[in-house]
């Protein structure tokens, strides 16, 4: 049995008796994963250990935006594409990020570099419209982002430095 299987068994055991255990279990499994996502194999293991249908686990995992079914980059860059940010130029910013990281967004509006260092995705609105355009990097919101500022931040990340 793999280490991951043992870890998932422990997570399932600790939540088994709770109501709505599946949600807590999936959350814990995702948090403890290497790239903040639920792999197909992990979903099968959760279903098996909790003795629920595979289709049920898949249904829950695809319903909540919180769950990722693909590996997430070490750094997650979230570009707001809400109306306020759009009018203040979020589209060129998005284009710039994608170009600099050589990425193309998929149908779901996300993209991850092959080396799993960066994930770029968009959101409809952060609710930070007064500070538009905003971009979140690893959950920290950066306001009134300009192309120059963005370029510097990406450069720092690429060089392995913290973003200030």
């Amino acid at each position: 049995m793999s280490d991951r299987h043992t870890a998932i068994q422990e997570i399932v055991a600790s939540h088994r008796t709770e109501r709505g255990a599946l949600l807590s279990i999936l959350e814990a499994v995702q948090r403890s994963s290497d790239h903040n996502y639920l792999s197909k194999e992990e979903l099968v293991l959760v279903a098996k250990e909790l003795e629920v249908p595979l289709s049920t686990v898949y249904s829950v995992a695809t319903f909540y935006a919180f769950f990722n079914l693909k590996a997430q980059g070490e750094h997650v860059i979230t570009v707001c594409r809400g109306t306020a940010c759009h009018t203040r130029g979020s589209k060129p910013l998005l284009t710039q990020v994608l170009k600099q990281l050589n990425l193309q967004l998929d149908e779901e509006g996300t993209a991850t570099t092959d080396d799993v260092r960066f994930t770029v995705h968009t959101v409809a609105c952060f609710g930070q419209c007064a500070l538009a355009p905003v971009i979140a990097i690893d959950s920290v919101i950066h306001s009134r982002v300009t192309e120059q500022k963005l370029s510097q931040m990406l450069q720092s990340l690429l060089e392995g430095k913290e973003v200030s």
């Binding site: 249908p53 289709s55 695809t62």
Partner: peptide, 17 residues
């Protein structure tokens, strides 16, 4: 339970695992 509702909103569909 071979099938379930999958996804949400406009992307909701009945699907297998």
């Amino acid at each position: 339970s071979a099938i379930q509702m999958v996804g949400r909103g406009l992307k909701t569909k009945v699907a297998t695992f």
